[in-house]
């Protein structure tokens, strides 16, 4: 399926010249992503040499996002800029009218995220993340490349009928791996911060609208109520089955479990509460990633997939 962006569309990387940016640009190029530039005002006019399957690929560095868009027609930006500069980097893309901005950076102050998410929303721009692994899509035709935008390793799974959305990176990889014989239409990590641009609910809506997706995996964790909101919507709007996994049943009150958003506060946002509401909305919840994959297999078997 295509998710938020056409397959093969040109994309740029903000923060491409940094350590993480270089590493993942190289990886995304190898995965077939059409990366047409990076930005860094101090290195504008230069280019970076990436080796893609033994061949040299020159990726130009532009001074600004607008210049990169003008010269390349980029339709998305992937942001690897460190937390203290992330707000201005994302706002640069928002102001330039970049249609899709994927923010990988972890550790951005929530006030900065609230600001750029609200600014993007006002202009009809989609933000994925922050603190997320990005997204991968698998094309309907096996020969075409899909999109690999972010840090999700290529090759964990192939194409198939499942849509996956998750708050966690490694649990995304884990479930993709458990279900790699069945395959995916797309997998999206929405991120583990308290405020994110694209929600679990947004992803379910996209999967519901996509004909090639037959069932969805939803991976949640403690903190907030994004899982409950997605489930309430799915209950009355979703025709496709959803199987969920929730992490953090053993998390104590008031302790941040790695992700900035993964915290039970004032007794709210517990895994127990999420499981209960999801089940009330007709979503089956696995106790472990393995069991979640098993439930999905049963459901697909019942659907005759």
């Amino acid at each position: 399926m295509t998710l938020f962006i056409e397959d093969g569309a040109p994309v740029i990387v903000q923060g491409m010249t940094g350590h993480e940016g270089m590493r993942h640009t190289a990886r995304m190029l190898t995965a077939g992503t059409n990366i047409v530039g990076g930005t860094n005002p101090r290195k504008a006019g230069t280019s970076i040499d990436f080796s893609v399957e033994g061949e040299s690929r020159q990726v130009p560095v532009f001074g600004t996002v607008s210049e990169a868009m003008e010269k390349t027609g980029a339709q998305a930006s992937i942001v690897f800029v460190p937390p203290r500069f992330a707000k201005s980097a994302v706002m640069e893309s928002v102001d330039a009218g970049m249609p899709l901005i994927i923010v990988i950076t972890e550790g951005i102050p929530v006030a900065d995220t609230a600001y750029f998410v609200a600014s993007a929303e006002k202009k009809g721009i989609r933000i994925v993340g922050p603190n997320c692994p990005g997204l991968v899509t698998f094309p309907v035709t096996p020969r075409d490349p899909g999109m690999n935008l972010g840090i999700i390793p290529d090759g964990i799974a192939g194409r198939g009928p499942l849509g996956l959305v998750s708050k966690s990176g490694t649990l995304t990889y884990q479930l993709m791996s458990e279900l790699n014989d069945i395959g995916f239409t797309a997998a999206l990590g929405v991120g583990g911060d308290p405020i994110v641009g694209t929600t679990l609910l947004d992803a379910l809506q996209a999967f519901e609208a996509d004909d090639s997706t037959k069932a969805c995996v939803l991976i949640g964790e403690i903190g907030g109520s994004a899982e409950q909101e997605a489930a309430e919507w799915a209950k009355s709007n979703m025709t496709k089955p959803v199987v969920a996994y929730i992490a953090g049943f053993t998390a104590p009150e008031g302790k941040q479990m790695g992700h900035a958003g993964a915290i039970v506060s004032g007794g709210k946002g517990t895994a127990q509460e999420k499981k209960k509401i999801l089940e009330e909305c007709g979503i089956r919840v696995g106790e472990t990633p393995g069991q979640t994959a098993e439930i999905m297999r049963q459901i697909l078997a019942d659907l005759g997939e």
Binding site: L171, Q174, I222, A271, P289
Partner: peptide, 9 residues
């Protein structure tokens, strides 16, 4: 974070 929480569970 997700995988570690899952491991704790």
């Amino acid at each position: 974070a997700g995988l570690v929480m899952s491991s704790l569970d």
